[in-house]
Amino acid sequence: MDLAIETRGLEKVYEKKIHALKGVDLQVPKGVVFGLFGPNGAGKTTLLSILTGIILPTKGEAYVLGIDAIKESLRVRERVGVLPEGFGFYEHLSGLENLIYLAMLDGLSREEARERAEKILDEVGLCEKKNVKVKEYSRGMRQRLGVAQAVLKDPELILLDEPTQGIDPQGVAWFKNFVVNLRQKGKTILISTHLLQEVGTLCSHAAIIYRGKILTIGSFEEISKRIREESNISAVFIYPNAFMAENAYKALVESGFGEVRVEAEKLYIIGDPEKAESMLSEKGIGVPSRVNFPSDWHDIFVHYIFFRRGDME
């Protein structure tokens, strides 16, 4: 398999003895949208910072597009676009001026940088606001500008750290379309996030990271197969909201149905789903949607982070 990213035994211990990464082995195939999913503090940003050479690991190896990311980080950054978490722009400059500056740092001449910046601003829908100072941009516009700077040099690999954090549903929809377009152009995209429901559907492959360890990695099909072999969850009942799911959960517990778990708007059924459905029906509660487990990346995340957390620690 042709890999865009490969790490072996990556460890990072910060000076305050925080063990952020504990032997991370990551393989990201070329040409996919890859999700790096994990809760806050799992080590996602640390991992991305090492891949781009912003920080050094304590131990281990990291290769990006076949280049040693630890020894030759500049070469990596020539070919990789990054949207770092907590990024900011020069507030007193316009969106266009910010992008021209960054494009020049990417190695373009002033004329090329302007041309490229204008093209990208058009692609991200900020063309009309290109001469407006960034301090007047909304959060969503800043995020679009952030994505724009990440694709400025038309990189082969794009690393996006929490790209949808704090943006509205319209912004998320725009972001998804943008990533789909990038994918169609053959780019490899790594999205690091804890907001799975927003961007999970974009990813064909993923890794779940928790407390500095990769809990699982692979394509959705591969991981689903693995989970089905080890999990006793037989089905997932999906409700329109968490309140209805909670009601159904309580009804099943009161009826003495074996084991059931609730997580947001989903009921995870352990045991016979037909029996659970009929018990709910007796209490006048329907099942709007029933799917096999795991049905999406969120189920996989829930399985590893909430259900199997005890096994992992």
Partner: peptide, 10 residues
């Protein structure tokens, strides 16, 4: 947060 954008370039 501009340092992050500068350092993410070559």
């Amino acid at each position: 947060g501009t340092l992050l954008l500068i350092l993410s370039r070559p």
